[in-house]
Design a binder for these strands. Sequence first.
DNA 1: GAGGCAGTTTGCGCAAGCGCAAACAAAGGG
DNA 2: CCCTTTGTTTGCGCTTGCGCAAACTGCCTC
Lengths: 232, 232
Amino acid sequence: MALDRSLVSGLPAFAGLSGAEADAVLALARSSRFPKDTEVFSQDEEAGQFFLLLSGHIRVVRTTSDGEQVIARYINEGELFGIAIAMGRTTYPASAVAAVDCVVLSWPNSVWPDLQARVPAFGANAYQTIGARLQDTQSRVMEMSTRQVEQRIASAVMRLVQQSGRKTQDGVEIDFPITRQDIAEMTGSTLHTVSRLMSAWEEEGIVRSGRQKVTVTDPHALMLVAENRRKK
Amino acid sequence: MALDRSLVSGLPAFAGLSGAEADAVLALARSSRFPKDTEVFSQDEEAGQFFLLLSGHIRVVRTTSDGEQVIARYINEGELFGIAIAMGRTTYPASAVAAVDCVVLSWPNSVWPDLQARVPAFGANAYQTIGARLQDTQSRVMEMSTRQVEQRIASAVMRLVQQSGRKTQDGVEIDFPITRQDIAEMTGSTLHTVSRLMSAWEEEGIVRSGRQKVTVTDPHALMLVAENRRKK
DNA sequence: GAGGCAGTTTGCGCAAGCGCAAACAAAGGG
DNA sequence: CCCTTTGTTTGCGCTTGCGCAAACTGCCTC
């Protein structure tokens, strides 16, 4: 069953590809569905495929040897993920879990060398993705080194809202279910601290939140919190 | 003046290249010297070149908007650095400072597309480098999220010793000058805390240290500290 | 060899944020 | 509709590690 190029036109991973090239890439892909809370791949498992998220949201999680979890990132629609092959790895460094029902394209790693040779722009986009993620991750290290917890949590929420925000009447809502625990694992803190801070922000009218739900009602104020310039 | 391929044979960046290919790459390179404490390139400056460290040690530093510094990594002999071009960036995301006198090869970014086409193995090695650094940086995020300061500092020192250790009669010494402040900037702590901990370790006979100098006398014990399994 | 600088050590007090515990609330399933 | 599960809130005490300050010590320069 053929995949239509309209599925992927406009996605950054397919930027700079001719229609014929996109078709060639798609001809090698397989699409599949992952229900909420299922694993697309698992940390340390032999990497056999790479992926593109067509719809949904995916949580990339690393688990330490003693069982603590850290959320490496959320994958948004249109992004490549699980591209261990482009990093010269043979295993996945993290697990990928569907945060909601997802539709995913996948390619066997075996097509990578060929694909790279025949459609260099596609390979280049993958490398670009990795470069961008390195930047991101470096920034996160800086944040964790220099900012305190409230600022980090505020930044994380801002980022989620910007990347996966959905306008509602109240403000902008993160459009997938996310727990206090998740936010804690993104920021290197605890669900207790996240809960306390979000309650405080709610008090101040910056956010509204409920079970697995966060809506930012005053993005500007949250930005000020992130920059530690709030006149408390 | 031609650079001899013996300069670079055996370096990971040149792995998988034929002699002729290595020569082709070297023909486009220029070598230069950077005295201790000089900048090879500067954060946010337009990226015009990429580099390979032939000898010495280089500190890669990011500075936040409010002037705090974080050491992103140390570059060891034989490694590529400043490869903004391979990440699709037009500016350097950090500054690179010679920690000791250094010898460096550099290529203008303009040769990159051509180089990649003619010597794909070289490009692939660069991408591999970026992939490895992403892994590294992710691990650092995990460490900062889940381990406490003493363990992080112990890990950082272990890593430095493994990558840039020089055997002495007392143990293994980090073979470039490094201050408490530097270690603090690598681990997201303060020079005070680093100093206190190193004093304690010295007490226990794990390290010996002095001005800009760290020697690990008992690597095994330091490993235990890093894993928080020391029987204090 | 005197002076100054850069790096280090250490004491003391304090605050951020964690850990633990307990209660509460919203979904969801039978 | 009840019961279980999963997520959230909040109080309290305490530890980690930071901030500030002051003293100290190699090392380099003149």
